Computed example of a mutant assay.
Amino acid sequence: MELILERIAKRRTYTIGRLYIRRQVVDEYLSGTADDYFCDTLEPTWRDYKNGAYKVKGRSAIPEGRYAVVISYSPKFKQWLPILLGGPEFNRKWQGIRIHAGNTAKDTEGCILVGKNKLVGQVVDSRIWTHRLKQKIVEAKGRGEPVWLTIR
């Protein structure tokens, strides 16, 4: 399963995105992929790392890229949650980046919050969307599919 996070609003204190699930399209006229909107996301401040920006601990969105996603137990949240895995450099700088519930940028220290962006700079119904996303990931893993998140 491929998840796509498209960052659409890069503000001074938060970043809003849209999360899509990519699906294969095969019919008699067309084959390829389509990205189906799933929910909105909220992250800390986006920083232009490619042009020299630096990470601010607990207040920076992760770099654009493609990350493996697995579900593991979070001692901090005391529940099973999606976690992003990257290469050695990512794991050294960004260890423990999860997708979890929360409503404002104050609820994240670099993680991705999911929900609906109905209020400026916030997501709502986050627990519901976290649960739904976990279900999708578990279903994909049950089919033997790897789960990836591409952030752009």
Rank of each mutant, 00 (worst) to 15 (best):
L30Y: 10
L30W: 06
S31V: 02
G32Y: 06
T33Y: 09
T33A: 08
A34C: 00
D35V: 02
Y37V: 01
C39A: 11
T41V: 09
P44T: 09
P44G: 10
P44C: 13
P44Y: 05
T45Q: 11
W46A: 09
W46I: 05
R47A: 13
D48P: 01
K50H: 11
A53M: 11
Y54E: 15
K55N: 15
V56Q: 15
K57W: 13
R59V: 05
S60P: 02
S60M: 06
I62A: 06
P63R: 12
E64T: 15
G65R: 13
R66D: 09
R66E: 13
A68C: 04
A68N: 10
V69H: 00
V69N: 00
S72T: 13
Y73Q: 08
S74G: 12
P75T: 08
F77N: 13
F77I: 09
F77P: 00
Q79C: 13
W80E: 14
L81F: 06
P82Y: 02
P82N: 11
P82F: 01
I83L: 09
I83C: 02
I83V: 15
I83D: 00
L84R: 03
L84T: 01
G86E: 05
G86I: 09
G86L: 08
G87Y: 09
E89I: 11
F90D: 01
N91F: 01
R92C: 07
K93R: 08
W94L: 06
W94V: 06
G96C: 03
G96M: 04
I97E: 00
I99H: 10
I99W: 10
A101D: 15
A101C: 14
A101S: 15
G102F: 08
N103Y: 13
T104N: 04
A105L: 04
A105R: 03
D107K: 06
T108P: 00
T108R: 01
E109S: 10
E109F: 04
G110I: 05
